[in-house]
């Protein structure tokens, strides 16, 4: 587990540093997608979640769901392209689960990637996580994530 300030980044996940999204490769080749704890703390406690429909195809870096905190609405962007195979009913009822457990019960969608091997190369994982997020913070002029 990598920690930067109050934010945690499990080492086994794949991250898009720019969008604050994580993906976990499951044994069957599907992925589970969610928001990083850092992204959650930036937007604040979430009060709404609206996923795209199961069966829809979403391109990489296109919105697979929207979330709302206070009065901010923002997209949760697909880390890779693929088909949405599940959305989180518990989060639909109570979006704050994403804040409470961003890497567990607060997952945003499950996807069947169209080209994981080709597109996952653009994601950061393992030992590169700390350097990538710290570089992003520096580029954004932030002292914390």
């Amino acid at each position: 587990m990598t920690s930067i300030g109050d934010c945690l980044f499990p080492d086994e996940l794949f991250y898009n540093v720019d969008t604050g999204i994580w993906a976990r490769r499951e044994a069957d080749g599907t992925i589970t997608v969610g928001m990083t704890s850092c992204a959650c703390s930036m937007v604040g406690e979430l009060v709404a979640y609206l996923p795209k429909k199961v069966g829809e195809h979403v391109e990489r870096n296109k919105s697979l769901a929207t979330v709302e905190s206070g009065k901010w609405v923002g997209p949760v962007k697909a880390p890779v392209g693929g088909e949405i195979i599940a959305v989180n009913g518990a989060v639909a009822a109570k979006a704050a689960i994403i804040n409470a457990d961003p890497y567990g019960r607060g997952w945003v969608a499950k996807m069947k990637p169209a080209n994981w091997d080709g597109e996952a190369a653009g994601l950061i994982t393992g030992a590169g996580v700390r350097a990538a997020f710290e570089a992003k913070m520096k580029a954004d002029g932030l002292s914390r994530c």
């Binding site: 930036m42 937007v43 604040g44 206070g70 009065k71 901010w72 954004d140 002029g141 932030l142």
Partner: peptide
């Protein structure tokens, strides 16, 4: 752009 605001914290921006 968030660069106009110097923070990514949405409550501070608001």
């Amino acid at each position: 752009d968030r660069a106009d605001l110097g923070t990514r914290d949405m409550s501070i921006i608001a």
